[in-house]
Design a protein around this nucleic acid. Structure first.
Lengths: 211, 211
DNA sequence: CCCTTCCGGTGAAATATTTCACAATTACTC
DNA sequence: GAGTAATTGTGAAATATTTCACCGGAAGGG
C-alpha cells in the first residue's frame, strides 16, 4: 500500500468533514480551494487543515490552493471509500429503516446487500429495491454467498451480542454496532460502537460547560 | 460549580463508556468495582481509567475499588445528566421515529417535549404518549411555552440549515444535527454534528488498516 | 497486631497532537 | 519581466494526552 501514517481518530473525523466540503464544492463547480477556505467552513485554523492533509501526500500549489477533485480523491483513497464493499443490516426497526433508506452506503462505497430481522411480520418486506428482509436464520448462508464483509447491528441491546456472534461466525470482518452496549469480538474484527445516547450526553456536557 | 477541569472529547467518550459499565453493574447488584475491571470491559489500561476519573474527584479505596453507585453519580453529575432538560425533534421520518422511540432521552436526563414535521400526512401522528407531531409552523411558540433548550435535526440535508435557524430564533441553546452537513449557528449555541455516514467511513478506514 | 498484598492517587516522564514560523513557490500587476 | 502578495510544505516549538512509577492506605491472614 502507500506509506501513509496511521491517522489519529480526531484526524479521521476532520478529514471526513473536509471531504464533505470538497464534495459540496465539486457540485458547485469549484476547481480549487485553499486551506483557509476549508478552515472557515470547518471552523478550524488553516494550518490544521494543511497538517492533516500533509500526511496524505497533498499537492497544493501556492497562491492557488488544492485541486478540489484531486484532494477529494486523495481522502477517498485514504479511507478506501472507492473499493466496492458489501454490508448487511440486522434489525429492521426504525433505525434500521432509516439507515437502509439513507445515502450513506453509496457515499462510503458500500452496497447494502442484505437485511435481516427475526420478526415474521417484517420478514419479506422490501427493504430496498431488490432487497427483501430475510430471516435471521439465513444469515450464515447469505453472508457467505454475498461476500459480505460488514455487519450493522440495529437490534435491541439484549440481542446485540448474540447478533455479533452470528456475524463473526459467518465471517464478517467488521461490525458497526448501534446497540447501547459495547459488544465484544475477536481482536481481528473491527468493531465500531456508535451508541446514539453518547451524542446526547456529550451535548448535555457541552451545554453545562457553556453556561 | 465545582472545580472540574474541562474534559477532553476523548475523555468524555471514555467516561460515557464507563458509565455504561457502571449502570450494568448496578443492575447486577455489584457494589464495588476496580479500575482494572472497568478497564477490562472497556479495553483500556487501568491507569487510564484512574486518570480519567481522577479529575472528577474520585474517592476510591485501595484494595476495594470504587463504590459503583457513587462513581456513576459522579459521572452523571459531570455530564449534568440529572438536570431535567427539554428537547424537541424536527423531522419525523425513520430516523426521527427511531430516536423518538428510544430510551436515550431518559438516560441523559432529557424529556422529548415536542416533535415537528412539515408533511401534513405526518402532522397529528402520535410520536409518543401525549406528544403529537406538530406543524413546523408552531415551532416558535412551542419552544417558548415548553422551555425547550435543545433541538434535534433529523430532516434532509437541504432543509437542515433552515431548521437550525428556526431553532436558534426560537431560543434553543443547543442543536444535535443528524443531517450530513455542518450547520452553522451563533457562537453561543452548542452544536453537535452527528452525520451517520462518518461512522461508516471510519469503519472503512479501519478495515483498510486491519488488512 | 503486624505483615503482606492489592489497588487508588498522583506527580513526572514519555508520547502524541497542535500550533507556530518561515522558506519556497506561484500567480498577478504594472 | 521584475516586484509583490498569497499560500503551501514542513521542521520545530508548544501544548495536551497517555503512560509510567511509586507512595501510601486498606483489607486479609496469621
Amino acid at each position: 500500500m502507500s506509506n501513509l501514517k496511521k491517522l489519529s481518530r480526531a484526524s479521521v473525523v476532520r478529514l471526513e468533514l473536509y471531504l464533505e466540503v470538497l464534495e459540496q464544492m465539486q457540485k458547485e463547480g469549484r476547481t480549487h480551494v485553499t486551506s483557509a477556505e476549508i478552515g472557515e467552513y470547518a471552523g478550524l485554523a488553516p494550518v490544521k487543515i494543511r497538517q492533516d492533509l500533509f500526511g496524505l501526500g497533498t499537492d497544493g500549489k501556492p497562491r492557488v490552493g488544492y485541486d478540489v477533485s484531486d484532494l477529494a480523491q486523495l481522502i477517498r483513497n485514504a479511507f478506501d471509500m472507492d473499493r466496492a464493499k458489501s454490508a448487511c443490516l440486522v434489525g429492521f426497526g426504525n433505525l434500521g429503516r432509516a439507515l437502509a433508506g439513507s445515502n450513506i452506503w453509496s457515499k462510503a462505497g458500500f452496497r447494502l446487500a442484505a437485511v435481516f430481522d427475526r420478526d415474521p411480520n417484517v420478514i419479506g418486506l422490501e427493504a430496498l429495491e431488490d432487497v427483501q428482509v430475510k430471516s435471521i436464520n439465513e444469515i450464515f448462508g447469505v453472508i457467505k454467498s454475498e461476500e459480505i464483509e460488514t455487519g450493522i447491528i440495529t437490534v435491541p441491546a439484549s440481542a446485540a451480542q448474540d447478533t455479533a456472534n452470528h456475524l463473526v461466525n459467518a465471517g464478517v470482518r467488521s461490525i458497526w454496532n448501534f446497540a447501547p452496549i459495547k459488544i465484544s469480538a475477536p481482536e481481528n474484527i473491527v468493531v465500531e460502537n456508535q451508541s446514539l445516547a453518547w451524542g446526547l450526553i456529550t451535548l448535555s456536557y457541552r451545554m453545562k460547560l457553556a453556561m
